[in-house]
Design a protein around this nucleic acid. Structure first.
Lengths: 227, 227
DNA sequence: ACAATAGTGTCTGTTAGACACTATGCC
DNA sequence: GGCATAGTGTCTAACAGACACTATTGT
């Protein structure tokens, strides 16, 4: 017996660090439903074109943003009868982390980089919930891993990275502990003679070691003490 | 433009504790593809019947096993062109934990409870990979949470629960540490005067406190020392 | 009494976090 | 010199894990 068709789409939560804040990439929808309303980049799965669901996510992201994300993982699937007025729908959502400079280099002009703490009042479908889920995923992974370095550019200082962790976790971290643990991971190396200058003591610049450019490290203990 | 149809299914990895081992519920497929081969309980999403994807998972599980699982969460979505010979398919996989006695009470006779360490040589589709993903999810969640108590019955002893954690994590745990941490969670209470008798010193029986029957606790530190 | 497992008390090495301190730039 | 931030040394309280010990049953 033929089943009523299910609407199969892929959406991507692309997060970046913009002006010290976590921001998500949004686009105004060109068609109904939710025409003109901001939504995550996404689109139908093209069964004749996408070999895997990752391919579909990359294709959609490439089309909307021109970016190949250095980090991409499956987030969750949002499905049900009520989330799309056109019918029963299934949205396979991916979660991408992209440094701001990569995004800047190839941005399509219609993209809105919106700080996750100040989302528009209206978002298409259940995209607000999806973004919240992505934030929560990033937060929980950040507690015990080096995932956030995917949001930094090629060179960054420890204090800047600490600020990013604090922005993600929403709480202050201890300077000494953060330093020790992030360095103990062994994925960062100082860039000889390179310092970031401000109107105070310059900070040592670091980069991710070559062999960890793709792989990420997990740390043995959490950064914060929360249970 | 009409998109080529995507095959939308729900599958459930139902795990239980059988004779001290973690076991998964499998069924022989009645139709091609993979007719006669063991597979996870699953089926098409019924867009006209299932309001949400959880409904679909529960319906499929109820139909095959007669069980309403005390714990159910979305695991992952497996999708792509190659996993199903019929075409591009998308399987939304749920992950259920059920105590053995609940399962025994309403088992359909054609179910195979197979220890996860001794799976059949042949499994339908990518179900072996799916089961591995579920084991890994359970393992990672067990390190820092009380999730495994969902696999115990109404009453159990601390040493029995410790054995379950060891089966899931695949490594021995320290008796003292386990005791302290599982009790510190505050979700268990001793059953007054109830002991489990063997041919040695009887062990105190515990149960999950009423207010935690549905909610689960997370512990501040890991059970094991592994990073 | 003995075997076997349940359960506890104590010690030790490790570590997170607090705090104080030093270092190094710009004004 | 003063200020601000980078970076380090040290102390302490908490805790995981090891080990030895006691407790309680059946045989």
């Amino acid at each position: 017996m033929p089943e009523p068709a299910v609407i199969c789409t892929v959406d991507v939560v692309l997060l970046t660090l913009s002006e010290g804040e976590l921001a998500v990439a949004l686009f105004q929808r060109e068609k109904a439903p939710f025409e003109g309303v901001y939504a995550l980049p996404g689109g139908y799965i093209h069964a004749d074109e996408d070999k895997t669901s990752v391919d579909a996510a990359l294709r959609v992201l490439e089309a909307k943003t021109g970016v190949k994300p250095p980090y991409l993982e499956q987030l969750c699937t949002f499905a049900g009868a009520d989330r799309d007025p056109r019918g029963w729908s299934m949205s396979l959502v991916y979660f991408a982390l992209v440094p701001l400079d990569v995004l800047d280099a190839s941005t399509r002009s219609d993209m809105l980089l919106c700080p996750v703490d100040r989302l528009p009042d209206a978002l298409a479908f259940d995209h607000r919930e999806i973004i919240d889920t992505a934030r929560e995923r990033l937060r929980s992974k950040s507690v015990y891993s080096s995932l956030p370095v995917m949001l930094m550019g090629n060179r960054f200082t420890i204090p800047k990275l600490k600020g990013l962790y604090e922005a993600i976790l929403g709480e202050p971290l201890d300077k000494v502990t953060f330093r020790k643990k992030i360095l103990d991971l062994g994925i960062l190396e100082p860039i000889e003679g390179a310092k970031e200058h401000a109107d105070n003591r310059p900070a040592q610049l670091y980069r991710v070691k070559r062999k960890f450019r793709t792989t990420l490290a997990t740390m043995s203990r959490a950064f914060n003490s929360a249970g």
